[in-house]
């Protein structure tokens, strides 16, 4: 039996025929759509490396069945930049040296975009740390990550004000 799943992936409509309902959103992105920016860390919802946005909300793609998401809009790390122009969160991660090995970084960045969308943390570093606690960084670049999130949030807020 096949299950049809219609998704908008980084703005592009995709219709996928799944031969197996066990495929997670993470495996769909990496193995079937070859969008390997989203990382598989623990594959059990404990590390945050697989974070993507579903209808604008950050979730763990490893704990989501693709077949259940029919009609959803997915944003991955590949969907953030506009051509060669990086997203403000990506720029801020570089500016603040918010990574070492980089494996957790796509998940960190997607989580940061989600956090800023949610609008609950403000500029308070403790609220940013708490809001990012679902993303582990074994190189421990946390100081830079918190600064990058605050900086990107300020940039995005300024842009909104200017718009």
């Amino acid at each position: 039996m096949n299950w049809t799943v219609r998704l908008a992936v980084n703005g592009e409509p995709r219709t996928l025929a799944l031969d197996d309902p066990r495929v997670t959103l993470l495996d769909l992105l990496r193995e079937r759509l070859h969008l390997t920016g989203t990382k598989k860390g623990c594959d059990r919802g404990q590390c945050g490396a697989c974070t993507v946005l579903v209808d604008g909300r950050r979730i763990n793609s490893c704990l989501t069945l693709a077949v259940s998401l029919d009609g959803a809009a997915i944003t991955t790390i590949e969907g953030l930049a506009q051509g060669d122009r990086l997203h403000p969160v990506q720029e801020a991660f570089i500016a603040h040296d918010a990574l070492q090995c980089g494996f957790c970084t796509p998940g960190q960045i997607m989580s940061a975009v989600g956090l800023i969308n949610e609008g609950q943390a403000g500029d308070d570093p403790e609220r940013v740390r708490e809001g990012m606690s679902g993303n582990l960084c074994r190189c421990s670049a946390y100081v830079g990550i918190v600064e990058a999130v605050r900086d990107a949030q300020a940039t995005l807020t300024d842009k909104e004000r200017a718009a």
Binding site: G45, G48, T51, R57, R58, I59, N60, L63, T64, S111, G114, L115, E118, G131, M132, S133, G134, N135
Partner: peptide, 9 residues
């Protein structure tokens, strides 16, 4: 409870 990602889901 849990993380922001899990609470969203």
């Amino acid at each position: 409870g849990a993380s922001a990602q899990l609470r969203n889901a």
